[in-house]
Write a protein that binds this DNA or RNA. Structure first.
Lengths: 210, 210
DNA sequence: CAGATTCGGTACCGATCGGTACTGAATGAG
DNA sequence: CTCATTCAGTACCGATCGGTACCGAATCTG
């Protein structure tokens, strides 16, 4: 059985699963989990319901797979940012990446990880929880990266890695909301620049007013 | 006809419209426009469909009225912040208010103006557009307020009021996303404090790296 | 009282929701 | 070739969607 990997039995699949997943991802991205009906999804994927269920499970499974694809595709700037040499460069790459990804010319506005499902009724609760975990996972990765920066002396010893990570993710998610509302890339880039100009912000007690 | 204001003809309404609106607002807040079904809404309001349609129009009208109520209730910190004497105090009141409102103990987590409808399918597009306009309206008010601060010398003459306003709203919306994900008030307050510690951020060219 | 008017409950509308049974077409193995 | 296996299209499932027709109950004016 040298050819174990190949030669699937039966009629071969008539569509490209990667291409179909890409199109489904864009529908979820544009319309959110609850707003994307199976008719919308399969219409964009170019297949019918039966093929979708056979290939991907159900709507929830499809959403999860789209989220994975999103993470490795449009949101891959996050993983790249973590590999930047300094904490400041991590922050810069993250926010610049967020601006670019949420305002891509050929892509839906905003971020799938935010508008995919932020508030939902009971049938969409699993998708919502999946996105909460997704966002929190990124914060944890950022926190670990900043913890490392503190250990390396790249950030001051009294810096709070968790707080810096949360602050940065808050800004990135805010950018996603703006982008979903149609704010243009150049405006959001200036907003990101403004944040980065005073980064890292002080972690200690509040500075005197005025 | 001195009593023109009173004595409505016919059977009097058997429920309090303000109370019903308050409960509907919370359902939209928790579940979003698309995630809140008429059954959910009328169930929480304690009335049946017929009464809801007679009193409020339809689901879209109900949502708009809930958004108004939200603006004048839980989101009234926005209008209050604009009346603070200095730009810095405006920013502080806004972010502190956002933290409190999105993490209220007896209220749903997050912000109706964000998670009410961020991405939606075609049937929810009107609600989504209403929220986009709602958020942009608040940015415009902030921009005008900061423009005034520049004129008063409260902000430096080279400050960009529109950019400062957008930056602040981006942070507030980011806070709303965090809160929707269950992040607690004390954490978000520290994030807000961190932002305010370096506010207003410089508007000019980027500061030298490191 | 009678008559007009409005509210509230039931029962229903067509459309759409996510999901599936069934059937025929296309491919492998023998 | 035959036969098992898989894919894809149709047609459908019960449930729910937002919205409404209808009618009795309740309250006004006169």
């Amino acid at each position: 059985m040298e050819t174990g990997q190949k030669a699937p039995i039966g009629r071969p699949r008539g569509f490209d699963t990667e291409e179909a997943l890409e199109r489904a991802m864009r529908v979820f991205w544009e319309q959110g989990y609850e707003g994307a009906s199976l008719t919308d999804l399969t219409g964009a994927m170019g297949i019918n319901r039966t093929s979708m269920y056979a290939a991907f499970g159900n709507k929830e499974d499809l959403f999860r797979k789209c989220l994975e694809r999103y993470t490795e595709g449009p949101a891959s700037y996050g993983a790249r940012a973590l590999r930047e040499p300094t904490a400041r460069q991590v922050a810069t790459a993250l926010l610049n990446g967020a601006v670019r990804a949420t305002t891509g010319i050929g892509s839906p506005a905003g971020c799938l990880g935010v508008q995919g499902s932020l508030a939902a009724g009971e049938p969409g609760s699993n998708a919502r929880d999946a996105l909460v975990a997704w966002r929190d996972g990124h914060v944890s990765l950022l926190r670990d990266r900043f913890q490392q920066a503190v250990a390396e002396g790249d950030l001051p010893p009294d810096a709070d890695p968790g707080l810096l990570a949360r602050h940065l993710m808050t800004m990135a998610n805010g950018i996603a909301v703006q982008a979903a509302g149609g704010i243009t890339r150049d405006v959001l880039q200036r907003v990101a620049d403004m944040t980065l100009r005073s980064w890292p912000p002080a972690t200690g007690p509040a500075q005197p007013d005025a």
